[in-house]
Amino acid sequence: MIKDELVATGVRPTDGRVTDVCLTEKGDRLRKPAHAEARTIYDQTFAGIAPDKVANQSKAPYPTDGQYAKLAQRSV
Rank of each mutant, 00 (worst) to 15 (best):
1 M>L: 06
3 K>S: 11
4 D>I: 03
6 L>Q: 01
7 V>R: 00
8 A>M: 06
8 A>N: 03
10 G>D: 04
10 G>P: 00
10 G>N: 04
11 V>G: 03
13 P>W: 02
13 P>Y: 04
13 P>L: 08
14 T>I: 10
14 T>V: 12
14 T>Q: 13
15 D>G: 14
16 G>E: 10
18 V>Q: 07
18 V>S: 02
19 T>D: 01
19 T>K: 07
20 D>V: 14
22 C>M: 13
23 L>A: 05
23 L>P: 00
24 T>F: 03
24 T>E: 02
25 E>S: 14
25 E>F: 08
25 E>G: 06
26 K>F: 11
27 G>H: 01
27 G>W: 00
29 R>S: 09
29 R>E: 13
29 R>D: 15
29 R>T: 10
31 R>D: 01
31 R>W: 13
32 K>A: 13
32 K>R: 13
34 A>T: 14
35 H>E: 12
35 H>M: 13
36 A>R: 11
38 A>L: 15
39 R>M: 06
40 T>F: 08
41 I>D: 03
41 I>V: 11
44 Q>P: 01
44 Q>W: 04
46 F>W: 12
48 G>L: 00
49 I>T: 11
50 A>I: 01
51 P>D: 12
51 P>C: 11
51 P>Y: 09
52 D>K: 07
53 K>T: 02
54 V>K: 01
55 A>K: 14
55 A>V: 05
56 N>T: 05
56 N>A: 14
58 S>I: 02
59 K>Y: 09
59 K>G: 08
60 A>F: 04
61 P>V: 08
63 P>Y: 06
64 T>A: 09
65 D>K: 10
65 D>V: 15
67 Q>P: 03
67 Q>H: 15
69 A>K: 13
70 K>W: 02
71 L>A: 14
72 A>V: 09
72 A>R: 10
73 Q>T: 08
73 Q>N: 12
73 Q>C: 04
73 Q>L: 14
75 S>M: 14
76 V>G: 11
76 V>C: 12
